[in-house]
Amino acid sequence: MTQRLPTPPASGLSWLNTADDGPARRALLDVCACRAWAGTLLRGRPYPDPEALLAAADAAVAALTAEELAEALAGHPPIGRPAPGDPRSAREQRGMAGAAPALRAEMLRLNLAYQERFGHVFLICATGLTAGRLLDAVRERLGNPPETEREIVRTELGRINRIRLGRLLRAAAPAAPAGPEEGHPR
């Protein structure tokens, strides 16, 4: 079942459209570790609205070569082992945080089997998924042919990028000034 992801707010889009290439590139590489993907989005600026940015991001993922896809995947830690000190990684993999030791051990074993079979990290948009669902997903996908799995990975990468772009636009959006009701005098 395809989950409809929310469209990010337009207010942060002005930063992305007008930021110097260096900061914009760094922000985009934080979304997706593939230089070609970030370069494609940079060259597409300015975007008239968030939907146009998301469409460009999806098209850029679809156009990645095998090497570029591998570069993007290298930026993702294995499920169950978020990058140390990275709050985003921990947030995205929250479903594994309270998993029982046996489930965590099984996830590690299956992650390694997946990596051995396909040559890259098991990638899934883990946001909102339980540890059990993540474990079921890796079990199901281990049996896929490589070409099928490559397309699933591409889809999952696109979903992750959409969520991360939404967060980027929200973070770049100007904050509303705090009013006296929040304890700040005007």
Results as ranks from 00 to 15, higher is better:
Glu116Ala: 11
Asp49Cys: 02
Val153Gly: 04
Glu156Arg: 01
Ala113Ser: 08
Trp15Ile: 02
Ala113Tyr: 03
Arg26Gln: 01
Val138Trp: 05
Leu53Glu: 05
Asp30Gly: 15
Val121Met: 11
Ile152Gly: 09
Val121His: 11
Arg186Trp: 08
Glu106Val: 00
Arg88Pro: 03
Leu73Glu: 00
Pro78Val: 10
Ile152Asn: 09
Ile152Arg: 07
Glu147Lys: 03
Cys32Thr: 13
Thr40His: 05
Leu53Pro: 02
Ala175Thr: 03
Leu29Val: 02
Glu67Tyr: 00
Ala19Phe: 00
Ala178Asp: 13
Arg154Cys: 07
Thr2Glu: 12
Asn111Ile: 15
Leu142Asn: 04
Asp86Ala: 06
Leu54Glu: 15
Ala33Phe: 14
Val31Cys: 11
Ala56Pro: 05
Leu129Cys: 08
Tyr114Asp: 01
Ala55Leu: 07
Ala175Pro: 03
His184Ser: 08
Arg26Cys: 01
Ala38Ser: 07
Ala126His: 05
Ala100Gly: 14
Cys34Ser: 15
Gly75Arg: 15
Leu168Trp: 01
Leu53Phe: 08
Gly158His: 04
Leu169Ala: 01
Gly98Lys: 14
Ala55Ser: 11
Arg81Pro: 01
Arg104Pro: 06
Leu135Cys: 04
Ala59Met: 07
Gly22Phe: 05
Thr130Phe: 09
Ala62Gly: 06
Phe122Val: 13
Pro23His: 10
Glu106Ala: 04
Thr130Lys: 04
Cys34Met: 12
Asp49Tyr: 03
Ala97Asp: 10
